[in-house]
């Protein structure tokens, strides 16, 4: 299947990935200019990555992570694709985090009023580029 419309450019997104006790993540504060995606009760993904990430959990796993692909795109494009490719309801509040299957891919979304961050695990980058197009 070929699509003529050029899609957004997705590239590797560097993050800091932290797995820690939920309470430690609840209490943590991140510097301004970083987006923190709470992907699970015990996991947060911060982009751009933090130089020095700390949480109050000595057993926390803190890693520099380059395992996601994605990019910031215009809300209009994001919503047009989501209307076509997403069965679940995307939150209306802004900013908002959401994740689930979109176009058959496990996608993470960070929705701001002026832009939307779309992330997918790097091994699905090829499929994201093919499917997340207008």
């Amino acid at each position: 299947m070929t699509r003529l419309a050029a899609g957004p450019v997705f590239e590797r997104v560097l993050t800091t990935r932290i797995v820690a006790m939920p309470a430690a993540l609840d209490a943590a504060r991140w510097p301004a200019g970083h987006v923190a995606l709470r992907t699970a009760a015990d996991e947060v993904l911060i982009t751009p990555p933090l130089a020095d990430a700390r949480v109050a959990d000595e057993h926390a796993i803190v890693l520099a992570d380059g395992s996601f692909f994605g990019g910031w795109i215009a809300p209009a494009l994001a919503l047009a694709v989501l209307e076509r490719e997403c069965e679940w309801e995307v939150p209306h509040a802004r900013p908002a985090f959401a994740q689930g299957m979109v176009a058959g891919l496990p996608v993470k979304l960070w929705l701001e009023s002026e832009r939307v961050l779309v992330l997918v695990a790097a091994p699905f980058a090829h499929d994201l580029a093919e499917r997340f197009v207008a």
Binding site: R17, V19, A20, E43, D57, H59, L63
Partner: peptide, 12 residues
Amino acid sequence: LDVRILNQTMAL
């Protein structure tokens, strides 16, 4: 159990 678990299959 009190553990932290991180799947790194796609990261590494």
